[in-house]
């Protein structure tokens, strides 16, 4: 047992033998994400686990955990069926609080963008138009993914660049994990790949313009704080969102209202 295991005892399912030990990727407020294997040593999977909350009544806790794991799995399945790029569900035991899904190769979009921007900073010449075009192109792919998501009647609830993966093209099979940013060629490739949406723990089924606009607003704020140097390109996300999703105009109109409220709120402190 490692120190991490003591601090965060693994779910019972992960205490059974596997070819390689599970890796704790993140420990969030609500749950944990392990990288492990499913069925075969060669099939990597992401296992989301919601541990019991000792401060909640056990019966209530069990019910909430079960409902949340089921809800997340259900949204993933729905999105996947509709062609929204999300991880496929491999298995689930809602009562035990876990959900095993396809492991998405690559890095979170946040990491890819920051690696790319960080690189640009280190360079003698400022980012030229051609290079900026790479970033704009990634923004379009994000806009397309979000547009597809909203089209299916799902709002994400926590759209940030940490909750999107950038999957290298043609990586159905195990591949590299780190973003390539070291070489010129690597830099050009750093923003390549397919945007895959993850983390549907707060997702809901909704067709409301307001809910959709809040999704976009959350993403916009996330960009402003995580990638201030990329914020001015946010328009590219919305442009592509409009192209992908027919009902975008009314959502974007609502987005104006949501921004306004946001500004008022921040003025009030």
């Amino acid at each position: 047992m490692t120190a991490a295991d003591k601090q965060f005892p693994p779910p019972p399912i992960l205490t059974h033998p596997s070819a390689s030990p599970p890796i704790l990727v993140t420990q969030g407020a609500e749950g944990r994400l392990y990288k492990t294997t499913h069925l075969l040593p060669t099939l990597p999977c992401a296992l989301k686990y919601r541990p019991p909350k000792p401060y909640r009544h056990p019966a209530l806790d069990a019910r909430l955990t079960r409902a949340r794991i089921s809800a997340e799995a259900k949204v993933l399945e729905r999105c996947w069926r509709e062609g929204v790029p999300v991880p496929a569900v491999h298995a689930m035991d809602a009562a035990a609080g876990w959900l095993a899904m396809e492991w998405i190769e690559g890095v979170p979009v946040r990491v890819a963008i920051n690696a790319w921007l960080g690189d640009a900073e280190g360079e003698a010449a400022p980012t030229n138009e051609k290079q900026e075009e790479d970033l704009v192109d990634l923004m379009r792919r994000i806009g397309e993914a979000v547009g597809k998501l909203h089209k299916t009647g799902v709002v994400h609830g926590d759209l940030t660049t940490s909750n999107m993966m950038l999957r290298p093209r043609g990586s159905g099979t195990p591949a590299n994990g780190e973003p390539e940013a070291a070489t010129q060629d690597g830099r050009a490739k750093a923003l390549e790949g397919e945007v895959v949406l993850i983390d549907f723990g707060l997702a809901t089924q909704s067709m409301s313009d307001e809910d959709r606009a809040v999704d976009l607003y959350v993403l916009e704020r996330a960009f402003a704080s995580t990638h201030p140097r990329a914020e001015r390109l946010f328009g590219a996300i919305l442009d592509q969102y409009k192209t992908t999703f027919k009902k975008a105009p009314s959502v974007l109109a609502k987005l104006e209202d949501v921004r306004m409220r946001g500004r008022k709120r921040s003025m009030l402190g």
Partner: peptide, 16 residues
């Protein structure tokens, strides 16, 4: 492969 994934998802979700 896609159909296989869909089938497995259907099994995992059990009609939820």
């Amino acid at each position: 492969r896609q159909e296989e994934k869909l089938a497995v998802m259907g099994m995992a979700l059990k009609g939820l």
